[in-house]
């Protein structure tokens, strides 16, 4: 989900950045390795633009995992049963773990954890637009697992073969863990959809609100995603935004049908010739507004994230002091 181009589209492009003079022989050898589906490892030579694109993509991905804990974390104490509470707690812990795998993988490219966290907290770094929508009811937790994690899985499965080794390995672990996230969400939706009229309405309302933002998670349409071609050539991305979006619609609509919920798109129709669903236009202005930071709860999310970081400062300081004390003690012995 987090592999999309999240730059503001009105921002001036900087084509010169891509044109850093690279050693042509090294560049040819690199391109050949990547084209042959070889993995690139941290100490291998790589073009500056490849490194830069990866750092941006991986750190955005990591930030999304970390911020993604916030909307769900809000619901841990309000989960309707002990079972749901334990499951949600495990899911949120996984998201934290996923953020850590990805930060560590990005650090192999020479960026520091501190730089990345500072970029997130200062608002310079982007994260998935989806987390700037509010979670109003318990059904939203179901919809997030089902749709948001479902979209993430579609995006992440091909990334297990992304050309940068540490990123690919992180994705293998993440994909292995992600499947339960989607299934627990779908289970929540199934129970609500089969419940009382109020519960049913709640489930439908959550689907109505999360459907379009979920489609936006795949990023802008291909004709407005200037870096896609380069990223695909370098095997940083393996499928385009529109291809993945179509795949998501095709697998998700029958799931909604199966539990009697209705996808909120009057233009949605099965296209026999294509073997796919046709669907209505996505409101890209809304997407770009959220990318610019105008999401409904964007400010709350960053406030909560920064507060968590600052409230934990004393723990970090204590751990550092404790370690330093033991270094001194060991030296004296």
């Amino acid at each position: 989900m987090y592999t999309t181009e999240l730059e503001d589209k009105n921002k001036k492009p900087a084509p010169r950045e891509v044109l850093v003079a690279e050693d042509p022989a090294k560049l040819v050898a690199f391109e050949a390795r990547v084209a042959a589906d070889e993995f690139i490892e941290p100490k291998d030579w790589m073009p500056a633009a490849y490194r830069k694109t990866l750092v941006r993509q991986m750190s955005q991905h990591a930030h999304s995992e970390i911020v993604g804990m916030l909307p769900e974390g809000n619901w841990i104490t309000r989960a309707p049963s002990l079972r749901r509470k334990a499951v949600l707690l495990a899911k949120v812990q996984d998201e934290g773990g996923h953020g850590l795998y990805l930060y560590a993988a990005a650090e192999t490219l020479g960026t520091s954890r501190e730089e990345m966290i500072e970029a997130l907290h200062s608002g310079r770094a982007k994260y998935s637009t989806i987390f700037n929508y509010p979670t109003l009811t318990w059904a939203d937790i179901g919809a997030i697992g089902w749709l948001v994690d479902g979209a993430a899985i579609l995006n992440q499965v091909p990334l297990q073969r992304t050309s940068y080794g540490p990123y690919a390995r992180a994705m293998v672990k993440i994909c292995k863990e992600e499947s339960f996230h989607q299934r627990q969400g779908f289970e929540i939706m199934t129970v609500l959809a089969g419940g009382s009229p109020e519960q049913r309405r709640m489930a439908q309302d959550a689907l109505d609100r999360w459907w379009w933002p979920s489609l936006m998670m795949f990023g802008p349409p291909d004709d407005n995603s200037p870096n896609t071609a380069q990223s695909i050539r370098w095997r940083i991305k393996r499928e385009t935004n529109d291809e993945l979006r179509q795949k998501f619609v095709d697998v998700t609509v029958p799931q909604a049908d199966a539990i009697g919920l209705k996808v909120p798109d009057p233009k949605l129709a099965w296209n026999e010739a294509r073997g796919s669903y046709d669907f209505g236009p996505v409101d890209w202005e809304e997407f770009y507004a959220v990318v610019r930071g105008e999401g409904l709860v964007a400010k709350d999310r960053m406030k909560a994230r920064v507060a968590a970081w600052e409230d934990g400062a004393w723990v970090r300081e204590a751990a550092t002091a404790h370690a330093a004390k033991h270094v001194v003690k060991a030296a004296a012995e």
């Binding site: 560590a104 954890r113 992180a170």
Partner: peptide, 22 residues
């Protein structure tokens, strides 16, 4: 994978939480 930690004990604890949840 890897973890950041102030000392060895903390590194083990973080490694446990990060890499052996299942």
């Amino acid at each position: 994978g890897s973890v950041h930690a102030a000392d060895a004990r903390m590194a083990l604890e973080s490694a446990r939480d990060t890499y052996t949840r299942r």
